[in-house]
Amino acid sequence: MIPSISSTAPLRQCLTLRRISTTALQNKWKLVEKTDGNTTTVKAVKMVDTEPPRKPEDRCALCTCNIPIKLAYTDVLVLEQFMRPDGTVLPRQLTGICKSQQLRLERCVMQAHWAGLFPDRTIPEFDRAGYKRFSRYWRDDMSMYFLTEKKETGTWYYLKRYPSKDSKTWKRLEPS
């Protein structure tokens, strides 16, 4: 088993106490352009948002529990809230998380990209050549900084019982 701490369970416990309001929350702004002939007016309009706004005295969203949450690259639903649609991480001046969690978040997002967990949020020129085509996993968010070259003795002994690539003999074996 991968020793990754699933962060969803403590999150659910601490987020059961939510701030409830009767009116629709309008705490997000949006720019709307209007063109009348030669004049273009840009107006800031309030948007409906499901969550209340963050106050300046609020704590970091990833440090609210008694136990510090250790994010892992498999916590995809947490990671994608802090991401732009092109797969980059939002700055912490907008999201309001502390510096250490921001660094951890960036590492986890990068690992998730490398593991291919965000197939629709990567840039099209993301490098998947060579060894990057094959599936990989991460034990820890820091494990990419401890690199060692592992030497192994290969063996020539090999039993190739079934064809491992598409071949004519393999196609003959298939029931048609």
């Binding site: 999150l11 659910r12 987020l15 705490n27 997000k28 702004w29 949006k30 720019l31 800031a44 948007m47 948002d49 499901t50 969550e51 209340p52 706004p53 963050r54 300046p56 609020d58 969203a61 990833l62 947490v78 809230q81 802090f82 732009r84 649609p85 092109d86 980059t88 939002l90 907008l94 999201t95 309001g96």
Partner: peptide
Amino acid sequence: PRLVHFPEDHFEEWEAP
């Protein structure tokens, strides 16, 4: 649950790539 809480004067355009 949603974890991101944006500040009061947040513009949606800031989340664009």
